[in-house]
Each structure stands twice: as C-alpha cells, then as structure tokens.
Design a protein around this nucleic acid. Structure first.
Lengths: 318, 318
DNA sequence: ATGAAAGCGCTAACAT
DNA sequence: ATGTTAGCGCTTTCAT
C-alpha cells in the first residue's frame, strides 16, 4: 500500500480510501491511485484490515454438516454458499461425520457465524463462543439458538396416515440414532398417527446395509408388516434393497422420509416425505446474517414444511 | 494476550511462546500461563499472527467446483475436506456454476492454495495469483499447473469396446459442452474405439432434460443406434428416462461415463465407467500440499484410472 | 530461559 | 478533500 501511495504520489490514507470505495476522493487522485494499483498488481491484505477495522468482520461463515457428500447436506450446503456469495461472504466447510464435533467447530470458530447440523449429544461447548450460531436439521442440546428444521412430526404422521388410508394397519418403523432429535420426532409422528397400534420398530440404523439387514429381519419375523416407514433416505434405500431381495417390492408398501435422486426411476417408484434442503440452507443463512447484523431477539425455531410425494411404493393397497 | 501476560505475571512474549508450543519455557511459567489462558478464555487471534508471521500461511485452502451438490463434486469435496482436516487446514468452498469463475476464484484467492475444477474457457487470469493451484477433473487453458484427471480417453474407449463386444456397431454419443476437456477426451475415446464407424452424436447437453430430449430424437431418427454412450451421469440419467419413455430400456444398450448412486437399483441396472472422485480429491489435496510446502518441480498431469462396472444396461446383446 | 522494542498492513481518530 | 499519527494482536529480532 505504501508503494502504491508513493507511485501515485499520494498519502497512504488516500490509497486506503480509494481501495475501500470511499467517495471523498478527488476523481483525478482516485484515477492515479487505481492506475498505481493496477501497475503494481496490488491487492489489499484482508487479514491486516480485519485486524484494525472496527467491526471485526471476517467476511466468512462456517458450515458444519454431517457429511457434505450426502445429497441432503450437499443441497443445503450449496444453498448456503449461494446465499453467502450473494452477500459477498465466504464459506468454510467442515465435516462432523468423524464424531469430533467440538474440535471441528472450534477450528472454524474464528468466523462471523456458524451454521451447524448438530451431531453430538450436547452443544453446551458453544456457550463460550462469541459467534452467532444457527442450527439446521436438528435441535441442539444445552444451548439456545435459532434452529431451522423440517416439520418432522407432522411429515412422519402424514406418511403413516397415507399408508393407513391404503388399508395398512401393521406398519414397521426403521429409524436412525434415537438420540438425534430428527429421529425422535419422526418416530413420534409415527406413533401419533398409529395410535396404540405401533408395528415392529428398529432404531439406531447407521447406514443402508444395516437398514437392509434390519428390514429383512423384520419382514421374515413373526407377523410381518404390510408397510414400512423409513426414517431417512439411507434407510429407505436399504429397505428398497431388502424388498427386492425378498421379491416383495410390489407387496409391501414403503414410504421414506427425505427425498433422494432417482427415487422416481426405481421400480416401483418410491413414495417419500420430501424435505426442502435448499430452502433450509437459505433460511439458515439469512437467519445467521440477521444475527451477524445485530439481531438480538429471542432464538427462533423455524419449521420448513415437508411434502408427501406419492410415486407408487406407498400406494400399494393391502 | 496482554491480559494473559499480566494475569500470569509474565511477559507478552512468554505467553506467545506457550501458545505456540515452544519448548523453551520453564514448566512452572508455562503452567501459570495456561491457567491464565483458561481463566480468561483467551483465544489467539489468527489474523494477527498471520500478519506478523514469517511464512504467511493462512492454514486455509480454497476449493472451487462446478456445483458442490452434484455427487461427483460432493465426493471430491468431501475427500479434500478430510485430507485438509488431517493436516489441520481449513477449506473454503466456492461454486463455479454461475459462470463467473474469475470472480469466484479471486474472492477466495487469499488462501495458501486452490483446487479448481475449471469451467471457463481460459484460466490465464490465474497467472497473476501468487498462490499454488491444482486443477481437478479438467485441464486448464492458458496456464500450466498440476492437474488430476480421470483416464477419460481410455475409459470411454473401453466402454465402446465393451459395447462392440456385445455386437453393437451403431453406437450413439451424447456428451457435454464440447469445449470442456473432459467432454473432448471422452468423445475422442469414443471415436478411437469406433474407428471410422461413428454413430449419431449430440453435444453440448447441459442437463438431464436436454439429454432426455436428445436421446428421444436420436432413437426416433432414421437408422437409430442399438447402443448409447452417455458422457456424464446427468446425461446417463436423461437417457434412462428416454429409454423408459420409449419402452426401449431392454432393447437399446447404455453405458454411462461416471457412476452415480442407485445406478445398480435401476431396471436394468446401469453399466458405467466409474471414476474415483474421492481418490481424485485426495490426490489433488496432497499434490497441493506439496506445492504449498515448496515443491518447485514441473507441473504434473496425474491420471486416475476408471473402472468399467457391468451391471446390465451395457450387456444387452444386439 | 525470558523480556523489550519494533513492525507486519491496514484503518480510526484526529488534524489540516 | 487529504494527510498524520497511533495502534489492532501478534511474532520477530535482539538483548539480557
């Protein structure tokens, strides 16, 4: 910057003003500065300006998701990046899959704000952070903060009612880790719609292979269900594989929570309760920006509606 | 840091030493400093240390992909994040889909290095950057730098030879934007394996819907092909839809370049030339780290092998 | 082994 | 409208 000032024959501060787009600079001086910037290929040092600046904004937010490579997270991530880009902000991406949530979060803590899909049992470690946080997909434990979620209970209950309408009475539940609020809420929706007549349940399914094994066991068990509700897309896919293996894909109905690519091309096409990850990401980003801009109101819980998409697998009558 | 020094009753520099894990501090002083750090909830300001530090490393790299939400990019991205995390580095994510590659890149240029899947016609704008760059998926134009790619020509040629083995002679090519080196190379492999007997070709297909329309046109055209080679997974999916619409999914063979989730669950299951995006991401990250660490050797072109996965759609005999 | 002083590149506050 | 000075939080260099 010093070099630029010397080359342009102005003071350091004038260069700073031009670089920062302040309007109180005479046009000819500004032009000279810009020429010098160009010829010296000068680029401002963001870290240095951050250090001195009053507002202390880094222009960066952190996004911590379970696994940026699964379709739900990837779509959400994409939406956050787009929204941040529109605001001229950058996005640091982190993975929570390895189970070291606290560490992963703290490494990106020196940002203007965080969007987190909480995985760990407790998020109290965030209390010491001075940074605004918005949670997505799941409610945190031990802290209060804005959270953007799907209407999990209503969505799951709607799926079950849809199956009941087709005549199903014995409906199995296959779900994710019980301690996650998403799994808990979807299970609650399942129970609510079914009243007292819950079917077989399997919890804590971590991947498609586990879901496939569990579905086979349930379908081969005594008094097998006529329909299955799958609590997340990985599980849905495992159930599809199981039904195929047993030749039951046109016999046992299936509704999955969360849509996934090509669900409509399977045979039968898979009926799902679709979430809207892009909207969730956008909403989380906009909420975070409001907090960054100083919004001090009480933490909000924002529910993004789900949509039942009947495609075939959920419309197999009993 | 001043507060910590005062609380611990030592000099600023001693605090700095402890924080940076230097060993030349007496154990009792170090303990006092750590206690003060704890009680004051002190956290070092990364920007400030960056500013003064000799090596000027930010501990951050930028990753710019076409669209972090497509499965190929997402898997690659995930691998880069993991590899960076293992090295204690952070990852800034950017999207190139909007067509403003230069701007997107320059906004994340203040990092230690960049991994870019080039989209624009030319990357000469990178020459002025002082930051090491590794390209993935596609070769850049106008700059020389390490590039990590799939064996596109060989992979495509292998797919075509596979179809020829089943008796196919009239094989259509449906591909992406011709100016992208991936599309060019896959097309070259197609031509090479086919000798002079190339079938109908459609280029510049940007999404699944366009591919579906193109496939329908080709299949309804005069002298329709008995097999189709799809140049990327979005196109493959479009072709699957087209074949279904026309009831030809068991008549016209299909091999797609790039694997995609659930390809094995479609009917018939889709034969693909699988890439290894995770390995590409890992390789790109490791190559970039070598450059960051000062490797000045000539730019390398690293080819990651592809694998033909026969699943059914490519094994329909004529 | 510890500390004092200087300064990284920039902007805030205050001149002029 | 432009320039001067101080100092952000840290690490370097050099002294002790």
């Amino acid at each position: 910057m010093n070099d630029v000032a010397r080359t342009a024959g102005v003071s350091l501060k004038t260069v700073s003003r031009v670089v920062n787009g302040e309007t109180t600079v005479a046009p000819d001086l500004a032009a000279r500065v810009r020429a010098a910037v160009e010829s010296l290929d000068y680029r401002p040092h963001l870290g240095a300006s951050l250090l001195r600046r009053r507002d202390r904004h880094t222009g960066t937010i952190g996004v911590l998701l379970e696994d940026v490579s699964n379709p739900f997270s990837a779509a959400l991530h994409r939406a956050v990046i787009d929204e941040a880009g529109a605001r001229g902000m950058q996005v640091l991406a982190g993975n929570l899959a390895e189970g070291r949530e606290r560490e992963a979060v703290l490494t990106v803590a020196q940002t203007d704000g965080l969007i987190i899909a909480p995985m760990a049992a407790n998020q109290a470690y965030l209390a010491s952070l001075r940074v605004p946080v918005v949670f997505v997909d799941r409610l945190p434990t031990g802290v209060e903060a804005d959270t953007v979620l799907s209407t999990n209970v209503a969505g799951a209950a709607g799926a079950i009612r849809h199956l009941i309408t087709q005549g199903h009475r014995r409906i199995a539940y296959l779900g994710d880790m019980r301690r996650l609020t998403t799994a808990k809420d979807r299970h609650r929706g399942y129970l609510r719609a079914l009243g007292g007549r819950a079917g077989p349940e399997v919890h804590d399914l971590r991947d498609a292979a586990a879901a496939e094994r569990a579905a086979i066991a349930v379908l081969r068990g005594p008094d097998p269900p006529t329909a299955i509700f799958a609590g997340r897309s990985l599980i849905t896919i495992g159930v599809v594989r199981a039904l195929r293996r047993l030749g039951l894909e046109r016999v046992v109905a299936l509704v999955g929570f969360d849509d996934f690519p090509l669900a409509d091309l399977l045979d039968p096409p898979v009926t799902v309760v679709a979430q809207d990850p892009a909207r969730m990401g956008r909403t989380a980003a906009l909420t975070l920006f409001e907090r960054i801009d100083g919004d001090k109101s009480a933490p909000r819980e924002i529910r993004i509606p789900t949509t039942l998409i009947p495609r075939g697998s959920g419309e197999l009558a009993i």
